[in-house]
Structure formats: structure tokens, C-alpha cells
């Protein structure tokens, strides 16, 4: 009898697995059904509670640059609102925007404006998304410590990253070959750097290194003689040399007053207006208790401190 029971249990498990498998294969997206259910749940919860006690579950997917912040803040938020369940996942800005647009996730985290990601045929998708800017990340050009140059102009950077200048002596440095440590063409960090530091798109050059994590970029710039790359401010330390951009020092103050241009908003997109629980969470993200504590602590720049604003086209206006 024991044996029979074992066989029966095994059989049930297999059928169960098979059912899971086939439901996954039917939908083109591997988490389709699950996430759909979650959306309903959170919307229902938000409506019923009438704004007093919040409930629901929120899935926030996307940018790995923003993930540590959202993760940390969501834990604090859940402590105060026990009935709200927030799950934070990485996967990249593209994944975040796709999933929030398809309704698989409630919040899509992104390094760049949705309008820049959804182009051509997909452009209408960007219009459905509502932007919530929660922080600012600034990037600095970094070089290996053996380089004696302190500042690079925009033109010099363009020439280096387009391969027209290949030796440091051409920009006033030692006679050493330039090794570019880049981010992949699809990365949000690279798009920000190209848009605001170079003002032009660049191609992947022969011999250039591309790495998809800031940690690896930093390691390679530290170790490779003549290397140049770019990193978010939170990664800067003494192991690499931080460059001035057009003579402006790369630090928080110059970003805030608008004189240092290489920075980008960190976006949390929702599809349409957020429900009560989501709205409370997003409001909490931009509240002073988060902006002045977690945001600064994790190396981002508080969005409400910025003295300038910037729109999708890159037009900067003083607040």
C-alpha cells in the first residue's frame, strides 16, 4: 500500500508540473498569469480600503541601477504597511518598461525616459506610462591612475569614444594607448553618457571592452593601463581617477546647480495612474524621510534638491 501511495503522489506531482509547464508555454511570457492575478489583487485591495489601510501586492521590475534603492525603501514601507507586499526585481530597464507596459509588473524601473526606449512602432506604448522621477544618478568619466590628464573637454571625449584619438599624448597625457571600457550599446548608463556627455551616439570600436556591470568596469579601469570609462558617482573612489568635464568638477554640488550635465533621472513608471497602495509607495519614495536618508546613503542624488529640471528632449530649465 505504501508503494502505491508513493506512486500516486509522484504521479500527481508530475501532472502538476506538466500543467505548470504547459500553462507557461501557452503564454509567451513566463510570468503572465501570475502577475495578472497580482494586478487585480492590488487594484481590488486599494479600492476597498478607501485610503485608510493600504493593501495589495506590487511588483517592481527593471533597472539594476535603481534596484538597491527601491529594494531598501520597499522594506521600510512594508514595515509600516503590513498588508502591502512589494517585490523588487532587476532585469534591466528594457525588461522593466516592457513588463509594466504589458501589465506583468505594476512598476517599471528605468534609467532613461520611456520615450527613448519605445521608438517607432512602439511609441504609443510610452504614452500610456506615467513617469515618477525618484532620484538622480550622475556619471563621471574615470581613467586609470597612471594618466596625468585632469580634465577633458566634450570634444576630446567625443574624439576618444569615436576612435579618432587613440593615444593619451594627443590630449596632453603620457604616450600610452587608450583602452575604452564601455557599457553595452543597449545599456541605460551608456545612453545617458552618450546623450549628455558626448552629445552623439557612438559605435562599438574594434578593441573596445564592454562590460555590463559597474563593478567590472571599475575593476578593469583600475587595472588596465591607459583605460578610460565612466561610472555612477556611487562607484567613485581612490582606485580610479575622476576626470573634470569641460573643467567642471564631477560632484554632487555641481550636478545640483546644473553646471555638470552628465546625469539622468531614475524613473519608476506605472501604467496609467497608480492605485492607492502604489501611489502611497511612490509618494513615500519622494518624501523627505527617504530622499534625505536612503537616497543619499546609497549614493544617489535627491530629486527634490535639484535646482534644474530636464525633459525628454534634454532641455534644461532652472526651477
Amino acid at each position: 500500500m505504501k508503494k502505491m501511495l508513493l506512486v500516486a503522489v509522484a504521479l500527481m506531482l508530475t501532472i502538476g508540473l506538466a500543467a505548470c509547464g504547459s500553462s507557461k508555454e501557452n503564454g509567451t511570457n513566463n510570468t503572465g498569469t501570475n502577475e495578472g492575478a497580482q494586478t487585480n489583487n492590488s487594484q481590488g485591495g486599494g479600492g476597498n480600503s478607501g485610503g485608510k489601510e493600504l493593501s495589495g501586492s506590487i511588483l517592481a521590475v527593471g533597472s539594476t541601477a535603481l534596484q538597491p534603492l527601491v529594494d531598501q525603501v520597499s522594506k521600510k514601507f512594508m514595515e509600516e504597511n503590513a498588508k502591502v507586499n512589494i517585490l523588487v526585481q532587476g532585469g534591466g530597464s528594457g525588461t522593466g518598461l516592457t513588463q509594466v507596459s504589458d501589465g506583468q509588473a505594476q512598476i517599471g524601473n528605468s534609467d532613461i525616459f520611456a520615450e527613448e526606449k519605445f521608438t517607432d512602432d512602439d511609441a504609443p506604448k510610452a504614452k500610456e506610462l506615467v513617469d515618477h522621477q525618484v532620484a538622480v544618478v550622475a556619471m563621471a568619466t574615470v581613467v586609470n591612475k597612471d594618466i596625468t590628464v585632469d580634465s577633458l573637454t566634450k570634444d576630446q571625449l567625443v574624439q576618444i569614444f569615436t576612435g579618432k584619438v587613440t593615444n593619451w599624448k594627443e590630449v596632453g597625457g603620457p604616450d600610452e594607448k587608450i583602452t575604452i571600457v564601455n557599457r553595452p550599446a543597449s545599456s541605460g548608463t551608456r545612453k545617458t553618457f552618450e546623450k549628455y556627455a558626448l552629445g552623439t551616439k557612438t559605435e562599438d570600436l574594434q578593441g573596445a571592452i564592454q562590460e555590463d556591470s559597474s563593478g567590472t568596469v571599475k575593476k578593469l579601469v583600475t587595472e588596465t593601463p591607459g583605460a578610460i570609462g565612466y561610472l555612477a558617482f556611487s562607484y567613485l573612489d581612490d582606485s580610479v581617477k575622476t576626470m573634470k568635464y569641460d573643467g567642471v568638477e564631477a560632484k554632487e554640488e555641481t550636478v545640483i546647480d546644473g553646471s555638470y550635465p552628465v546625469w539622468a533621472y531614475q524613473h519608476m513608471y506605472t501604467k496609467g495612474e497608480p492605485d492607492a497602495a502604489m501611489k502611497a509607495f511612490l509618494d513615500y519614495m519622494v518624501s523627505d524621510s527617504v530622499q534625505n536618508a536612503d537616497v543619499v546613503e546609497l549614493g544617489y542624488i535627491p530629486v527634490n534638491k535639484m535646482q534644474v529640471t530636464r525633459d525628454v528632449e534634454g532641455n534644461v530649465t532652472k526651477k
Binding site: T64, G91, G92, S93, G94, T98, A185, S187, Q206, G207
Partner: peptide, 25 residues
């Protein structure tokens, strides 16, 4: 690459590098 010691890619590396950053479709 022009030598054994110059940056290049494989099929798998380019997929893992860009998959998360691109829009489905």
C-alpha cells in the same frame, strides 16, 4: 579580433549582455 589578446564577443556573451536592456519585440 586582430590578435588573441583583443576584445571580442561570442554568441552567448552578446545575448546575456543585451537581453535585459532591450524591449521585447
Amino acid at each position: 579580433p586582430r590578435s588573441l589578446f583583443e576584445s571580442t564577443s561570442t554568441l552567448t556573451s552578446v545575448i546575456t549582455l543585451s537581453m535585459g536592456n532591450t524591449i521585447t519585440g
